[in-house]
Each structure stands twice: as C-alpha cells, then as structure tokens.
Design a protein around this nucleic acid. Structure first.
Lengths: 176, 176
DNA sequence: CTTATTTATTTTGATATCAAATTATTTGAC
DNA sequence: GTCAAATAATTTGATATCAAAATAAATAAG
C-alpha cells in the first residue's frame, strides 16, 4: 500500500502471473534444479500452448458430443459447411485441409455417410474423383452446431479482451 | 512517408498482421459470408492455438525421431528425468501427469522397458504398486536429448522476444 | 496408339489410444 | 478378524490413425 509507484504494478502483476502459480511452474523448477545449464523457458512456452490447446479441445468436444459427434466429424461438417450450401470438396482436398492422411479421410467420410450427414458423388469430369457434399440433414446440423460451438469457445476465451485475443493471435503467428 | 504519426505504425502493423495474411483468414472470410450473424473470431483464436501447437509438435517430433523415439517416449523420459537421478514415479502418477489412461501408460512403459530405457521395480510398501525409474541408459539419453530438444523449441520461438514469450504465456493462462 | 508416370481413392496391416473388465492388494467399517 | 469399497496395474475389445500397397483412371512422352 506504500511501496512502489502504482503505475508499474499492473505490468508487474502481468509478468508475475505468467511465471508463478501456473501448472507449468513446478516443471520449470524441476528442470532448473536438474539442469541449471539449460534455460527451460522454451519448454514453458510450448507447454502452455499445448496445455491451452488441450483444454480448448476438451471444451469443444464436450459440446459437440451433445450432437453425438466427435472432433473429426465436426471438422468435416464445418469445412464443408463454410464452403457454402451445395458446394463440394474432394476427399483429397478435405484431407489436405485438415492435415490428415487420405485413408483417415476415407474412414471419416464412411462414418459420416453412414449417419446420413454427407454424401459422395462421382466427379463428372474425373472418374477417379469424388465430390463430397453435406446432405440436407448434415447442413442443418452444421448450422445448428456452429452456434453452440462458437458460444463454447467464446466462454473459454471470456477472460481475454478483444485486444488480448488479437495480440495472442499476433504472437502465435510468429511461431516458425 | 507523409501520412500518419510514426508512433502508431508499429501497433497498427501488429494488429494487421494478426488479422491478415495468416492461414486462418480464408476460413474466417468463408464463415463471415455463410453466417454473418456469428462472430467467428473465437474460432480464429482457438484455431491459431491448435495450429501453433501442431507446428511445434512437428518440430519437436522431427528432432526426437533422431533418437528413435516418439513424443510419448520422450514425455515419459523427461518426466522421470526432471524428478532427479534415481527418483521414481508410479505408472498411475505418470499417467495422471500426462493426462493419459493408465492402460496407455502400461503400453508406453512396456515399449520403453523393452528398449532398456526405463525399469519397473516393486514398491516395497505396496505390493500392488510399481516404481518406475530411468535406467542408466535412459538417464543418459534424456540428458543428451533435452539439449537438442530445447534448442529445437528455441529455434521455433526465435521470432518472439523474451517479453513476448512471457506475455504469450500470460495470455494463454487466462484460457478457462 | 502404347507405355510410363502421376493422381484419386480405398484397402491392408500395424499401432497407440481409451473404456471397461479383470486381478490383486490395501484400506476402512463394523 | 471379516467383508466391502477403493486403489494399482494389466488385459481385452474397439476404434482412429498412418504408411504402404492396391486399384483405377488421367496425363504425358515417344
């Protein structure tokens, strides 16, 4: 209440809370004791990114499981939905878009097709190729699901102001 | 060269580069067209986190595969190594630490034990329990590997200043 | 035209994971 | 002490993934 100038306190708190108290700090302490020759902060940064990603993934998954879907299925439905109504993508493009093997995509599409959410159509210009589209049911489901999906994400990000979110993206994009 | 005050330009650039050019921007554009009623920026933030995490994972994996290991094995080795030489953890604790099922941990330990990197010992105080420790070989490998591991991460984070890294962690920790 | 190469998708075989069941042991209630 | 509930680890069964092989069709070179 009487020590430093008030001006510096917010900044100080910011820095402190990024290095204290977090679940990462114990790990860093261990490494510093075992390998004082190594600066472990890169591990902390990467670890926080993975931890945050995992937390977000859990939250998103818990929402979409209300629709009897998993992350994989949601990914396909949303990718197709945001192309626009009636638009199609080939299995190869879908796989590339999601950084997935084409065989994994075959499997995902099989499951979604069995549930009636997507349909495969022959590509009229290339008999090797297929055109994958949402069914009406898939389109409606994606339309409904995206609302609660974004709400779920919004809730998990609610401690971040708009500026902070932008800054977070800015920093993440600098990762090589 | 003659328009606005120079002072604001860095901030402006910062904001611009977080919303333009990134691999996320096309996706946002699609969503804005299809669902103008929904603010898609939460998807962008989450997507950036997952994207960055995946990129880091790839880099780390490409380094540890020089040691014929995968992410799973590295995780176990490092968790044991940072406990200190000769320290042990039970399979349950290891599993909890890595947010993994105990059966997955059984599998990981089987593989590492087969390679002679860890050993299982009976817990003298609880005949149900085990104490997992690094072998000498495992200890040496962890010691060698952590150097290039941190270097690899450091390289991928090299575009971020020390302050930026701290700020990044600060922001990530706000995710609920 | 024919053959070789590339491209699109599926199938096969292997593996890491999880949830649930199993086995063995400890802890707690009485 | 005995029985029930909790805990530690493994086994089992199912599944999603990948890499590599297989199938089929388009493209290119001669």
């Amino acid at each position: 209440m009487s020590q430093g100038p008030k001006k510096t306190i917010p900044e100080k708190n910011m820095i402190l809370s990024a290095t204290e108290g977090g679940p990462m700090e114990g790990i860093l302490t261990q490494w510093r004791r075992e390998r004082p020759d190594i600066d472990p902060t890169p591990m902390a940064v990467c670890g926080e990114i993975w931890r945050a990603g995992e937390k977000l993934r859990q939250g998103v998954l818990s929402n979409i499981s209300n629709y009897n879907l998993d992350f994989a299925g949601m990914d396909v439905l949303f990718t197709l939905r945001r192309q626009g109504e009636g638009e199609t993508l080939s299995p190869s493009l879908l796989a590339k878009d999601m950084m997935l093997s084409t065989s994994a995509m075959t499997n995902r599409l099989d499951r979604l097709e069995k549930r009636g959410l997507v349909k495969r159509m022959m590509d009229p210009n290339d008999r090797r190729g297929q055109m994958v589209a949402l069914t009406d049911e898939g389109f409606d489901l994606a339309n409904e699901m995206v609302v609660s999906h974004v709400q779920t994400e919004e809730k998990m990000l609610s401690n971040l102001s708009s500026d902070e979110r932008q800054h977070l993206r800015f920093l993440l994009e600098k990762i090589e």
